[in-house]
Amino acid sequence: MLDDRARMEAAKKEKVEQILAEFQLQEEDLKKVMRRMQKEMDRGLRLETHEEASVKMLPTYVRSTPEGSEVGDFLSLDLGGTNFRVMLVKVGEGEEGQWSVKTKHQMYSIPEDAMTGTAEMLFDYISECISDFLDKHQMKHKKLPLGFTFSFPVRHEDIDKGILLNWTKGFKASGAEGNNVVGLLRDAIKRRGDFEMDVVAMVNDTVATMISCYYEDHQCEVGMIVGTGCNACYMEEMQNVELVEGDEGRMCVNTEWGAFGDSGELDEFLLEYDRLVDESSANPGQQLYEKLIGGKYMGELVRLVLLRLVDENLLFHGEASEQLRTRGAFETRFVSQVESDTGDRKQIYNILSTLGLRPSTTDCDIVRRACESVSTRAAHMCSAGLAGVINRMRESRSEDVMRITVGVDGSVYKLHPSFKERFHASVRRLTPSCEITFIESEEGSGRGAALVSAVACKKACMLGQ
C-alpha cells in the first residue's frame, strides 16, 4: 500500500517536472537572447534605426563620474514606483581627507489618484512632500541643488532636461508624456511658492545606482535594477552614441532593455503563462523582457503555473481556492519566502493557508518547484541581457580580458534567497573573457542622484555659470 502511494507521488512529481521543464533555458538559448539583445542595442544607438529599435539606448548626458572633490548639501528625489523618497545628502571631506556622503531620508507613498490623475496632481503632491521634508529638517530658507531620480523612459536633451516617452509600472498621470519632466517639477514648486529649489540633474535609477557604486569602486561602469521592473545602464564610447554629437570619451546610456521583445525577438521563448500575464497587464505587448524578470510579474506567473497544475490534477487534489483564482493573489514576496523555507515546509504551508488552501507535504514541495522554475528562468533571462552589455563593452574597448564592476539594486536581487547566485553564475558562463565584480548599492537611487548633481554643480562652477 505504502509502495503504491510512494509510486503515485513519484509519478505525480515526474509529471510536474515535465510541465515545469518549459521554463528551462539551455545555454544556447541564452546565447541567442544575448546576441539578439546586442543587435537591438546597436539599432538603438544608431541614428537611422533608433526610432524602430525596441531597446532605445537613451543617452543620459552623464559623462563624468564623481571624483571626490564636490562638497555641499544636496536634496535628492526618487520616483520610480508607488513609494517616493526625499533625501538630504551631505557631501563633504571625511576623516583623513576621505570623501564622505551622509544621508537623511523619508519615504512617502503615492496615492492612487496622483498616479493615475493628471501630471499637475502628481507633481503638486511631490512638491508637497518636499515642503514637508524641508519643514522637518528646518531647511526651507536654503535654496538647495536638487537631483531627481526618475525611473521611467526619458529622452534627455541635457542633464536637466528630459522628455517622458511613456509611463510604465502602473503610472498613468495624463499630460506628462511628451513633456519635460524637470519643467513639470519646477512648475509645481513655483505653484507652491513656499520654498526654492535648483533642479540641476535628472537621472534614471540605473544611472543613480551606477554612480553610487562608483563611489565604492571606481571600476563600476554598469548599473542595473532588478526590482519591480528590470533595466540597466553602462558607459558607452561616445563615438557609438549617434544621437549625441561628439566622439570623445564616454557617456552613460540608459538601455531601457525592459522593452526588448516588443518587436518579436522573444516570441519563441514566451510561454502561455507569459501571454496571460501580458494580456492582463496595463501595457499589453510592451516591456516583454521586463515581464519575464521583474517583481511586478513574478508572483503572478507562479500563480498561473499553480492553476495549470491544479487543472492537471497534480496539486491540491485538483481544487483551487477562490483566493488562488484571484489575479495578483500570489505576491512576489511569497516566491522569495517559499524558496527561503528551511525544509520543514512550515513557511510554505503558512503562505498557502493564507490563500485558503490546506496543502499536503507533496503540495508544498511542488509549489516550491514552481517558484524555483519561474525565478530561475528570470535570473537566466536577466543574465543574457547583462552578458550582452558586458561583452559589447569588452569588444568596443578591444580588451582581451576586461575587469568590470556592476552596481545592482532592486528588491528581487536583494531579497530573493537564490536569485543573485543563479544570476551571477549564468552571467559568468556567458562572459568567459571578463572578470566581473557585483556590488549592491546602498540607498543607491538617492545618493547617486545627489552625486550626479554634485558633478553638475562642479561643472557649472568651472564653466562660470
Score class of each variant (00 low, 15 high):
A6E: 02
R7I: 11
A10H: 09
A10G: 11
A10Q: 10
A11V: 13
K12L: 12
K12D: 12
K13S: 14
Q18R: 10
Q18H: 14
I19R: 12
L20N: 12
Q26K: 11
E27G: 10
L30C: 07
L30P: 09
L30G: 14
V33M: 09
M34S: 10
R36Q: 10
R36D: 08
R46K: 09
L47M: 12
E48G: 08
T49D: 12
T49N: 06
H50L: 03
E51I: 09
E52C: 09
A53W: 02
V55N: 06
T60E: 03
T60M: 03
Y61V: 04
R63I: 05
S64W: 15
E67I: 15
V71E: 15
G72N: 08
G72P: 01
F74K: 02
D78P: 04
D78A: 01
D78Q: 01
L79P: 09
L79K: 01
L79D: 04
T82L: 03
T82V: 02
N83A: 03
V86T: 06
V91N: 03
G92N: 05
G97I: 10
S100Q: 13
S100W: 08
K102Q: 14
K104Q: 13
Q106W: 09
M107Q: 11
S109P: 00
S109W: 07
S109F: 11
I110W: 02
I110H: 05
I110K: 01
A114F: 11
M115C: 05
G117F: 03
I126H: 03
E128I: 07
E128Q: 02
E128D: 15
E128P: 02
S131Y: 06
D132K: 12
D135P: 04
H137C: 13
Q138V: 12
Q138D: 11
Q138H: 13
M139G: 05
K140I: 05
K140H: 01
K142R: 13
K142Y: 09
K142N: 09
K143A: 03
K143T: 07
L144Q: 04
L144M: 09
P145Q: 15
G147R: 01
T149E: 06
F150M: 03
S151R: 03
S151E: 04
F152M: 02
F152T: 04
P153T: 01
H156T: 01
D160K: 00
D160V: 02
K161L: 04
K161I: 15
G162H: 00
I163W: 02
I163G: 03
N166I: 03
K169S: 02
G170W: 02
F171L: 02
K172V: 03
A173T: 01
A173S: 02
A173H: 02
S174V: 07
G175Y: 00
A176D: 15
N179A: 09
V181K: 06
V181M: 06
V182C: 10
V182I: 05
G183A: 09
L184W: 00
L184D: 08
L185R: 00
L185A: 04
L185C: 03
D187L: 07
K190C: 06
R191V: 00
M197V: 15
D198N: 09
D198K: 15
V200I: 06
A201S: 00
V203E: 06
V203Q: 00
D205V: 05
V207L: 02
V207N: 00
T209A: 08
M210A: 05
I211G: 10
S212R: 00
C213G: 15
C213A: 15
Y215P: 04
Y215M: 15
D217G: 15
C220K: 00
C220E: 00
E221P: 03
I225A: 00
I225K: 05
I225T: 03
C230F: 00
C230N: 04
C233M: 03
M235Y: 06
E236A: 07
E236F: 00
M238C: 15
M238H: 10
N240L: 07
V241K: 05
E248L: 07
M251E: 15
V253I: 08
V253R: 02
G258K: 08
G258P: 15
F260Y: 05
G261W: 04
S263N: 10
S263M: 06
F269C: 08
L271T: 08
E272M: 06
D274A: 00
D278P: 04
E279S: 13
S280N: 14
S281D: 10
P284M: 13
P284F: 08
G285S: 12
Q286H: 15
L288T: 15
L288C: 13
E290H: 02
E290Q: 00
K291S: 05
Y297K: 07
G299H: 09
G299I: 00
G299R: 04
L301Q: 15
L301P: 10
V302Y: 04
V302E: 05
L304I: 02
L307A: 11
R308L: 11
L309C: 15
D311M: 04
D311S: 14
L314N: 11
L314W: 10
L315F: 11
L315D: 01
Q323T: 12
Q323V: 12
L324N: 05
L324G: 05
T326Y: 15
T326D: 14
R327W: 14
G328K: 15
A329N: 08
T332W: 00
R333T: 14
Q337T: 13
T342K: 12
G343M: 07
R345C: 09
R345W: 15
R345M: 10
K346E: 11
I348E: 07
L352S: 09
S353L: 09
S353M: 11
S353Y: 07
G356N: 10
G356H: 14
G356L: 13
T361R: 08
T362R: 12
C364E: 10
D365P: 09
I366P: 03
V367C: 10
R368W: 14
R368K: 09
R369P: 03
R369N: 11
A370P: 04
A370V: 12
E372G: 10
T376Y: 08
T376N: 06
T376M: 12
R377G: 03
M381N: 07
A384C: 13
L386I: 13
A387M: 06
G388P: 06
I390S: 06
N391E: 11
R392L: 07
M393N: 03
M393S: 06
R397F: 09
S398K: 15
D400G: 11
V401P: 12
M402V: 08
R403L: 13
V408C: 07
D409G: 01
D409R: 03
S411W: 01
V412T: 09
V412E: 05
K414P: 05
K414I: 14
L415P: 09
F419R: 10
F419E: 02
K420E: 13
K420N: 07
K420V: 05
E421P: 10
R422T: 15
R422P: 05
S426L: 11
S426K: 15
T431W: 02
P432I: 10
C434H: 02
E435G: 08
T437S: 11
T437G: 08
E443F: 13
G444E: 03
R447H: 01
A449R: 01
A460D: 14
C461F: 05
M462Q: 11
Q465K: 14
